[in-house]
Amino acid sequence: MAEITMLEAIRAALFEEMERDPAVVALGEDIGVYGGAFKVTEGLLAKFGRERVIDTPISETAIVGAACGMSYLGLRPVVEMQFMDFIACCFNQVTNFVAKSHYRWGAPVPMVVRGPSGGGVHGGPFHSASPEMHFVHTPGLKVVYPSTAYDAKGLLKSAIRDNNPVLFFEHKFLYRRIKQEVPAEDFTVPIGKAAVRRPGRDLTIVSYGAMVHTSLEAAAALAAEGIEAEVIDLRSLLPLDREAILGSVRKTNKLLVVHEDTRTGGIAGEIAAIVCESAFEHLDGPIARVTGLDTPVPYAPPLEQRFLPNVEKVAAAARELAKY
């Protein structure tokens, strides 16, 4: 087993799935000859050719629409958004055409829209956003957000093989910063299943994406103070693994949700509602959340740092919660 980055794991999943099934095709801006803005698709064109790796015009609506049409004929297109912020340009195709297709007229849309998301790399307001909740609010879509190289490969394979449209968020801060031993052979990670990244008894920290790593660092710091936090990595936001969240809260009796996405309408609110509905008697303290600010993601490093949750903010919130 080789140690590879998350970016390489995503690339490996694409190569393996395209080799396994000629119905898998890739579309996107600059993905072929150039190999993608982040080089995720580097080498794909050389191996699979222009019919399967399609460099498109700058037309997100056309890319997603065409991928939807392709999927109606039994193909499994994988669309790259150069940055997930740009998915706003094809919001209508994704939420009205693609998401409602199976419900309205029984036409499955087996496609994946994947791309880099999230902040921490000074991308400014249009290259740093976390637009996942627009789509978690859209029945018919699945929303996946891996935090490790292993999960990225296994979840992308599951997403490609799924008969439903899957939005696959890749945190760009993690692309080359995390490394992990990932099996070279075929494996999948199921969509809709969370993972316990660190067991603990005093409180539960639920997170996803890059914030899982922030939460784990905070948990390590808290452990030194005698607070044992359980860290749950959601991995999928839609469908949400309610049982994993509820099971942990029933054990620790305290819940902190951490996400980089903005606060209002972020998934913390939904998780809090689920826990109040189904595990209220088990709570020993208020449900806490550490999130991005309710602002666009600013450009200047001190501003962006202010926007983003970090280890100190998570640890401080956990300490407060642990007092109950």
Partner: peptide, 17 residues
Amino acid sequence: GDLIPVMTGVAMAGRYL
């Protein structure tokens, strides 16, 4: 208008297959 890219994809997939 949304059908135009979708049917473009249908046409492309038909050719591909």
